[in-house]
Amino acid sequence: LKKVVALYDYMPMNANDLQLRKGDEYFILEESNLPWWRARDKNGQEGYIPSNYVTEAE
């Protein structure tokens, strides 16, 4: 899975979204639905995130 790091905080707009915290790492599960990607956080929560809020992890 592709790993990304959040560049900004993101508060979910609806139940399908995943909250982002700046500096945290996330795994990308699906990239087909631009600009929204399906992601999983370190706690196993899954949801959609804005792809322009993250960058690929080193």
Rank of each mutant, 00 (worst) to 15 (best):
A15K: 13
G47C: 02
K2H: 07
W36Q: 13
L18K: 01
N52S: 14
M11R: 08
P50K: 06
E30S: 09
M11L: 14
R38I: 09
Y53N: 03
L1R: 07
N16P: 04
Y10G: 01
A39V: 11
L20D: 00
M11G: 05
A57R: 10
E25Q: 10
E30H: 08
K42W: 06
E25I: 15
A6M: 01
L20Q: 00
L7K: 07
N52A: 14
P12R: 04
L29M: 07
Q45W: 08
V54G: 01
L1A: 07
R38T: 10
W37M: 07
M11E: 14
V4P: 00
Q45M: 13
E56D: 14
Y26V: 05
E58L: 14
N14H: 14
A57E: 08
S51G: 07
M13Q: 14
L7H: 04
M13R: 15
M13S: 12
L1Y: 10
D41M: 02
E25C: 12
E58C: 13
L34P: 15
D41L: 02
A6G: 02
G23S: 04
S51A: 14
D17Y: 15
W37K: 06
F27C: 08
K22M: 09
M11V: 12
K2T: 06
Q19T: 09
L7C: 08
E56S: 13
L29E: 03
Y8K: 12
K3A: 05
N14C: 15
E58F: 13
D24R: 06
L1W: 13
E30K: 06
W36R: 15
N14M: 08
I49Q: 00
L1F: 11
Y48A: 05
T55M: 12
Y53Q: 05
P35I: 15
K42R: 11
G23P: 00
D41E: 03
G47R: 01
K2Y: 09
N16W: 14
E58H: 12
A57S: 12
F27R: 04
N52L: 09
Y8R: 13
R38M: 11
D9V: 02
F27D: 07
I28D: 00
V5T: 10
E56K: 11
S32D: 09
N52F: 11
G44M: 05
S51D: 03
E31V: 11
V5L: 08
N14S: 12
E25T: 14
Q45D: 10
K42D: 05
L29N: 02
E56L: 13
N16V: 09
A6F: 01
V54K: 00
P12T: 05
Y8I: 08
Y26G: 01
V4E: 01
A57L: 14
P12Q: 04
Y8V: 08
A15Q: 12
W36A: 10
S51P: 06
Y53H: 07
M13F: 09
G23R: 03
S32L: 10
Q19L: 10
A57T: 12
S32I: 08
P35T: 15
A15D: 12
E25M: 14
E46F: 04
N33S: 13
K22N: 04
G47H: 02
P12S: 06
D17L: 11
Y53R: 05
D9K: 02
E30T: 07
D17E: 15
Y10E: 00
E56R: 09
L20G: 01
D9I: 02
Q19W: 08
E58I: 14
K2N: 04
I28Q: 02
E25P: 08
N33T: 14
D9P: 04
V54H: 01
L34W: 15
A15Y: 11
